[in-house]
Nucleic acid binder design. Sequence first.
DNA 1: CTCTTTTTAGCACAGTCGTGTTAACTTGTT
DNA 2: AACAAGTTAACACGACTGTGCTAAAAAGAG
Lengths: 182, 182
Amino acid sequence: MPKVVDPEQRRASVAEAVWRVVLRNGLDGVSVRTVATEAGLSAGSLRHYFATQAEVLTFAMQLVIDRVRARVHVATTVRDVIGELLPLDAERRAEAEVWLAFSTRAQVDPTLRALRDTSYDLLEALCGRLVEAVAPGAQDVEVERLYALIDGLVLHAVMRPDRATPELLRTVVDRHLEELVH
Amino acid sequence: MPKVVDPEQRRASVAEAVWRVVLRNGLDGVSVRTVATEAGLSAGSLRHYFATQAEVLTFAMQLVIDRVRARVHVATTVRDVIGELLPLDAERRAEAEVWLAFSTRAQVDPTLRALRDTSYDLLEALCGRLVEAVAPGAQDVEVERLYALIDGLVLHAVMRPDRATPELLRTVVDRHLEELVH
DNA sequence: CTCTTTTTAGCACAGTCGTGTTAACTTGTT
DNA sequence: AACAAGTTAACACGACTGTGCTAAAAAGAG
């Protein structure tokens, strides 16, 4: 009857518009109007797919999570799994930057915080399996050590991409895994 | 002649008001009016000490930097220096949270970015000296490994203070230093 | 007390914000 | 061709934003 539009696809394209706005102007630059313009819609039209601004944000954050999870899920070796978590190319660095922006806002937004904490727990469990695979019977402290190292590398890659280059990230991780085996 | 007020002290108290607002409502919650109210001033009065909002933010960020630098400067042993960088108590966790908020905004604010990058370079150099002190002649990769580990621990302490407890942070750092020596 | 200068408070302005409502448009079905 | 429903656009509302400007209040100096 009406113009045929797949709502889910539309919502996804809106989420990607959110990401672009975040990268350009930060999470503060995200308003109903800026996102609508970025997505090529009117503000009123956007509100037809998302009732509130909070809904837009949670959806955009959830989509980042889903994307990373899908990537990690297909990785097999320990080194490859960690490689999927690190921003080794420009696209994933952008993704990490968006994730970091949402994570800091989660500090004062209960809904986003729930999303973040759930992801944190999953990643912690993942690191636990990685450590167990590389060094069976290792102490629990090694899990947090690996996890903190990864997140630190991600942080540095986002903040100082000129210094924390993909090559350096890989070298650091390889060095750490090598030591973990022994 | 007029009411006697030390401008620098006033500016510092305004900066502390900024920190409290950031902790409560995030960096987005920082406006001339909210900060003025938090500092017990009127908006017009605040503008007498800071010409623009950008000036308020850079001053508040600079004061965080100065405070950390002063603390690190008096530390002697490697372990104590790292201890000053980690949020081992509630006050320093708050400080780290404020720092993280400013750092992410620096991603889209050139002025704040300059402050952040300068601090990043100083911390990197500091980690270089720490590594050299613990393991003379170690590879450069160990510097980034230690720095990323520290920043990852800080990040986790801010985001998940219930999981990344002070005890865990210390244990992880001690474990890393122990390995670094060998 | 009177003067002078710092400090303070308050208002005005144009702009943006989230959100609600309403009308127009588009398109498949009857 | 006529209808119906999904989709879009546009406007209104109150609230908040940063910033400039003006007048009042405060307090040491003469």
